[in-house]
Amino acid sequence: MESGNMTLVDRKLKILQAIIDDFITTAQPVGSRTIAKKYNLGISSATIRNEMSDLEELGYLVQPHTSAGRIPSDLGYRLYVDVLMKHYELAAKQKLIIKQLLLDEINKIEDLVQQASKVLSHITNLTSLSLSPQFRKSKLKNIKLVKVDSDKVLLILVSNTGIVKNVLLRIKEASQDVLDRISNLLQHQLKGFSIDELSDDVILNLKNEIVEYGNTIESLVLTLKNTLKEIDDREIYLDGLAHIFNLPEYTDINKAKQFISTIEKKDLLYEALKDNYEEDITIKIGRENNLEEIKDCSLITATYKLNGKVIGKIGVIGPTRMNYARIIPVMEYITKILTDILNKNY
């Protein structure tokens, strides 16, 4: 099986492509007569039937129990995506519409990412999801320490992408004047570092630099080290959940409800999204997904960047029958515009 691709001659590949194209469009299992009639491959229905049997044996097609026709397997879709799929270029008009929708007076980075997710769902007619910009992958722009109680201090962190995070610390016996001086030193030392870059060396230098504040800085440094790495809210934005009701795979209302309840588990989605963070486009088909709950779905994600560093993701989730060839160029263009806007404004 490991040399599956090698054994597929052109004729088999053409038949597999025709079956997948047909199934993506109709959602109906495909028979040899359909292929012979619709796809003008210049071969008989009997030959197509034999080739389809071979493709099934090789694991690229499966036959649903209730049908004489066949449908693509996860392996069939993988071969299609990697080898057979046509690569479409978006029309200039589509590009213009996407650009206008994303440039529509959006001030906050989170709003921009949500708008991108909305546009993606609208164009693909699928449920879209976005992972909000990751604070720990952004650069620190501003740090403030504010005394709120006799033993409580609020640490306010502002990233260069405009994200604000607040952490409540327990620090005793520190006047606001001392906190201001520490804030200024921290600001000077850490500005321009991302949370990911706060190594032990950076922290050690910081302690040596501001040794005069003893216990206060010790407590603060520990918090910076331990808390900031975990500071990101697992904030995932969803759009277009209702689209699934238009898909034949979800005409069964119980199946639709199950999909919605899975998709609304944000921690679950975060687990599915957090992998492959450096890849521009990731396509996980059916059982390639690590999560049992979405093993009959495909998840396509694309990353967006600030100053060359990936800071977040957007994606679509839906049946494995989704139109990969049309969806991927849309995602590539949306994330390109998103990245362009971020780099221009932040």
Rank of each mutant, 00 (worst) to 15 (best):
S121R: 07
V113W: 03
V119H: 00
I182Y: 04
L120E: 02
Q94N: 12
K147H: 08
A116V: 05
E209C: 12
I171H: 01
V158G: 14
K99L: 10
N125A: 15
I98T: 09
F193M: 13
L126S: 12
L101H: 07
V158S: 08
I98P: 14
D151C: 11
S175I: 10
N205K: 06
E209H: 13
Q94S: 02
F193N: 14
Q187L: 04
I163W: 08
A92R: 07
I163M: 08
K152S: 13
N208G: 13
S194Y: 12
D180H: 04
K165P: 04
S194N: 11
S130G: 06
S150D: 14
V119T: 07
G162R: 02
T124C: 14
I163H: 03
L168D: 11
I171Y: 03
V158D: 14
I182V: 15
T124D: 10
K147I: 06
P133L: 15
D196K: 08
I106R: 11
L186K: 05
V146E: 11
D151W: 06
I109M: 10
K93C: 01
N208K: 12
L102R: 09
N184W: 06
S128W: 07
Q189C: 03
K207V: 05
L101R: 15
I97W: 10
L198V: 08
S183K: 01
L145I: 03
L155F: 00
L101A: 12
N205G: 11
V148G: 06
V113C: 02
Q134K: 14
E197M: 02
N166E: 13
S117E: 05
L206Y: 05
N205Y: 06
V158L: 11
I109D: 11
K137D: 05
L169Y: 05
K95L: 00
I98L: 12
T161G: 14
E173K: 10
L101G: 02
K152I: 06
N184G: 07
T124W: 12
L102G: 14
P133D: 12
T124V: 06
L102S: 04
L120I: 03
T124P: 01
K144F: 09
A116G: 07
A92P: 01
K141Q: 14
A174Q: 02
T161E: 13
L168P: 10
L112K: 04
K207T: 10
V167Y: 10
T124Q: 09
R136Q: 09
K147G: 05
I98R: 04
K108N: 13
D149K: 14
K137V: 06
N166K: 15
I106L: 15
K99A: 10
N125S: 08
S194W: 02
A92M: 03
L198G: 13
L169D: 08
F135H: 02
Q187P: 01
N125R: 14
N125M: 13
V178Q: 10
S199I: 06
H188P: 02
D111M: 01
K108V: 04
I171Q: 04
K137G: 05
L126R: 13
D177M: 00
L131W: 12
N125L: 12
D200N: 10
S132V: 07
K118S: 04
E197S: 05
E110G: 08
K99T: 12
L179Q: 11
Q115E: 03
T127D: 00
